[in-house]
């Protein structure tokens, strides 16, 4: 790589910009849905709600112990044969939610498990309902404890979006692979690295900052 072809970079940057937007859109959708699914599973596991507890356990283990790519292949190429036809974007978000929900559930559950049982009794004894207890007493404390695990899960899921080209989505990897045909592999790789850094680094820094703030808030009674 003796010199960098800046013209190439400038002219191809819009392609990466569009792909990055798609990646962010899918990541945000998948991560938010994963958080919601994970929360429900964590509550089902924490309160040992019959049947749902077992279903949640089974799902969590299944999703955590298989790769996203294999999940996506099954969803995208397998299920349509059984009559369930997906669009690439839907499939990507469903796949990311399936994978991420399990990791989120474990993160939330770790936070819930760290809360002293007496906290619940104290909350109930001043007349808070079960929902209010969760909302005002348990959730804020659990979130602080679970934050590092949530943060790791978010970064992990953002990185996992890199496989979405297998469901025919024009994401960053797809664009990069396409551009390689024109030569310029150095410039293409540079754009690829910069794109991912631009997307993931701020998220990583933000979560790290929040984590330090929560740690310094030091809830330990």
């Amino acid at each position: 790589m003796d010199f960098i072809d800046w013209d190439f970079i400038v002219s191809r940057a819009p392609l990466f910009w569009a792909a990055a937007k798609l990646t962010v859109k899918l990541a945000v959708g998948g991560i938010l849905l994963a958080a919601a699914l994970g929360f429900l599973c964590a509550v089902a596991r924490f309160y040992r709600i019959p049947v749902f507890n077992q279903i949640a356990y089974f799902y969590i283990e299944l999703a955590r112990n298989t790769p996203l790519m294999v999940q996506l292949f099954f969803l995208y190429f397998g299920l349509p044969r059984l009559g369930l036809v997906w669009e690439g974007q839907t499939c990507a978000i469903v796949g990311l939610t399936f994978l991420g929900g399990a990791y989120m559930a474990e993160a939330f559950r770790g936070g819930l498990a760290a809360i002293n049982r007496n906290q619940v009794e104290s909350a109930l004894s001043i007349g808070l309902s079960r929902i209010q207890t969760l909302r005002y007493v348990i959730a804020p404390q659990a979130l602080a404890v679970a934050w590092p695990a949530i943060s790791a899960t978010v970064i992990f899921l953002m990185k996992e979006t890199s496989v979405f080209s297998i469901v025919a989505l024009p994401d960053l990897m797809y664009v990069a692979k396409d551009l390689l045909k024109e030569g310029h592999s150095g410039e293409t790789n540079l754009l690829l690295i910069l794109s991912y850094l631009t997307i993931i680094l701020p998220v990583s820094l933000f979560f790290g900052r929040m984590e330090r703030r929560l740690r310094f808030a030091g809830f330990g009674s």
Binding site: K159, L192, I193, I200
Partner: peptide, 8 residues
């Protein structure tokens, strides 16, 4: 290494 996707 943590921020870059392994695939990339």
């Amino acid at each position: 290494v943590r921020v870059m996707p392994i695939l990339a």
